[in-house]
Computed example of a mutant assay.
Amino acid sequence: MSGTVVAVCRSATHTFSKPTRDRIRLVAGVGVEGDAHAGTTVKHRSRVARDPSQPNLRQVHLIHAELHDELRDAGYDVEPGDLGENVTTRGIDLLGLPTGTLLHLGDSAVVEVTGLRNPCTQINDFAPGLLNQVLLRGEDGRIIRKAGIMGVVRTGGEVRPGDPIKVELPPEPHRPLDRV
């Protein structure tokens, strides 16, 4: 299984959207160099308020460009970085990956998938009604989170648009993604 990096983004401040860049540097155990969410312990404000010593399982946020396509078809103007992701991908079913999957990005970077992004109401501040597009309830009553996945950097390196992504599944039995 393989795909492509469509865009890379980072923001030094806690903004909802992140500007696109020509490259980002991933740092092992830390995240995206220069990004407000980089660090070994949690950086998301609500999690810091609860327990600032928690490990940061959300160092890198990835969204599949196919979600942007779906949202545009539903009438929303969404581009890479708009939903706060660091890496926009194409060609990989990110939401279908098991926990512990390794994503090899570009020449050397490796991100381990830790779980699903749990979208919050800030998405509606970006575009009213958008939360209902990325946080749904299935026919069986279970919650479906479509706002991307989170990961930690295992091996650092530069990542650029156009870089290949190689998927390395963990040993079975696979554990489905849960929110982190």
Score class of each variant (00 low, 15 high):
137 R>Y: 13
8 V>D: 04
142 R>Q: 13
29 G>Y: 03
8 V>E: 08
32 V>M: 10
99 T>M: 11
151 G>T: 00
83 L>W: 01
145 R>E: 11
67 L>M: 14
139 E>I: 05
127 A>E: 11
19 P>L: 12
72 R>I: 02
177 L>G: 09
82 D>Y: 07
24 I>T: 06
15 T>V: 00
108 S>F: 05
74 A>T: 02
134 V>F: 12
51 D>G: 01
148 G>N: 06
5 V>Q: 07
135 L>K: 15
57 L>N: 13
10 R>L: 04
177 L>C: 04
6 V>I: 15
50 R>E: 14
7 A>W: 00
104 H>S: 08
136 L>Y: 01
79 E>D: 13
160 R>E: 02
177 L>H: 02
62 L>E: 02
162 G>K: 11
129 G>P: 04
168 E>W: 00
70 E>G: 01
72 R>A: 13
180 V>L: 09
16 F>A: 10
98 P>T: 00
60 V>K: 12
27 V>C: 06
16 F>E: 08
19 P>H: 09
142 R>K: 14
128 P>A: 13
9 C>S: 15
19 P>F: 08
40 T>W: 05
165 I>P: 05
133 Q>L: 14
172 E>F: 09
180 V>I: 08
14 H>T: 08
129 G>N: 11
114 T>W: 13
21 R>N: 07
53 S>V: 07
